[in-house]
Design a protein around this nucleic acid. Structure first.
Lengths: 215, 215
DNA sequence: TTTTGTATTGAATAATCATTCAATTTTTAT
DNA sequence: ATAAAAATTGAATGATTATTCAATACAAAA
């Protein structure tokens, strides 16, 4: 199995790509299945059917259902992380513009859509009982929070804002995002991505009173 | 079955109480089981054992597992509703004091503890796939939001605050609460009830700048 | 082409679990 | 106290589902 991944074709990495395709097909199918049926009703059979492989193969490929679920959460987590890492790494950008880009990303349709959110919440709901889920979610949160606090700190300096600490602003933002994602799932008619984004920007406006970019 | 509830003893309502005891014992056991093991690992057998009745009885009493779960969510929802309804109904209380009481309630140990929160999130995670869960959660949210907006509106008048609409403040508060509850589950060391409560009060302070009760 | 090793299948297995129901215990009425 | 009715039990049933694995398809090498 491991050998295959390494040795199959030494001239080109086509084989590795092929295997990765199956790997990724199964992860995609898992996320889609959870989004469509819920975690409770997600069986290997459903996932395998959606990925167009046999049930036995799905299990064989990931060793266990649990492993497949963990891999899917990890993928989701990485995908999200990449999207905000990119923004934090951009050079020559004003801190306020950067934080606005962060907000836009958190409520972009790629990130904050009902399918993705329902999968996140499905995993969140099991976090207390599956240490591996918690580890994946926590590690991500930590780096995000850290970078966010640093960014807020810069903005506080620029705007001479002293009433609210970077930690406070960052935590408030973070909890608002989590809460709003949840509400998008409940009532997408009211909680459109635009509505949520504007609500968060309005929060920033309440902190940075003289800054009119938080329209 | 229904007859029993009504006719068993006509002189006193002891029988009704007794049956209610079993009913309630099962609902309590369900909530405890979900809190301890997660919704995915909550079986009728576990619940029955915890409630000290037979497995067959638990099912018979609630007709189905689904029904037992719905009843438990309804109970949780009613319990929460009662706690904030009481505050909204209090007479002769200043709007700002009232909203502070609401915040205190939302982060009281009776409401915002890891067991209750893990049960809430378990149900939330299934909301997209079980219309009955959604109905229960939505009905509650609606009344809460309505009362909250009215209260914020009063505070806006008193403080002559015009920049932020009652809807905006209410929605921001609501999403912060949901987000912070989630974070209590993730990292209770950092997100103590006190920490969360103060974070929310600080948000209010950013809106109502001259009001020093939001310490 | 034949051989050899790998990838993939799908049917069988075994475990779990909601639900049912005949039998038993408990309660109520006479 | 006895009969009738209701409450409760717990073992049996049937459905679902993760996991296994012998058999097959496929690809590479000779």
């Amino acid at each position: 199995m491991m050998k295959a991944l390494v040795n199959k074709k030494t001239t080109e990495q086509a084989s590795e790509t092929e295997i990765s395709v199956n790997h990724q097909k199964l992860i995609d199918a898992t996320i889609e299945t959870i989004a469509k049926r819920g975690l409770a009703d997600t069986t290997i059979a459903h996932v395998a059917k959606r990925a167009k492989v046999s049930q036995g193969y799905a299990n064989f490929r990931f060793k266990s259902k649990d492993n497949l679920l963990i891999s899917s959460l990890q993928y989701l987590s990485d995908e999200y992380k990449k999207s905000w890492q990119k923004i934090f790494e951009e050079k020559n950008i004003d801190p306020i513009d950067r934080i606005i880009r962060i907000v836009q990303n958190d409520f972009s349709s790629k990130i904050a859509n009902r399918n993705k959110i329902s999968v996140w919440i499905a995993f969140y709901s099991e976090v207390k009982f599956r240490p591996s889920y918690l580890t994946i979610c926590q590690r991500q949160d930590e780096i995000y929070s850290q970078q966010m606090e640093k960014l807020v700190s810069e903005i506080n300096n620029i705007t001479s804002q002293k009433e609210f600490t970077p930690k406070e602003v960052s935590e408030t933002y973070h909890s608002m995002v989590d809460g709003l994602w949840q509400r998008i799932l409940f009532d997408p008619k009211i909680y459109t991505n635009e509505f949520c984004k504007n609500l968060v920007l309005k929060y920033f406006r309440s902190i940075y009173v003289n800054e009119d970019r938080f329209a």
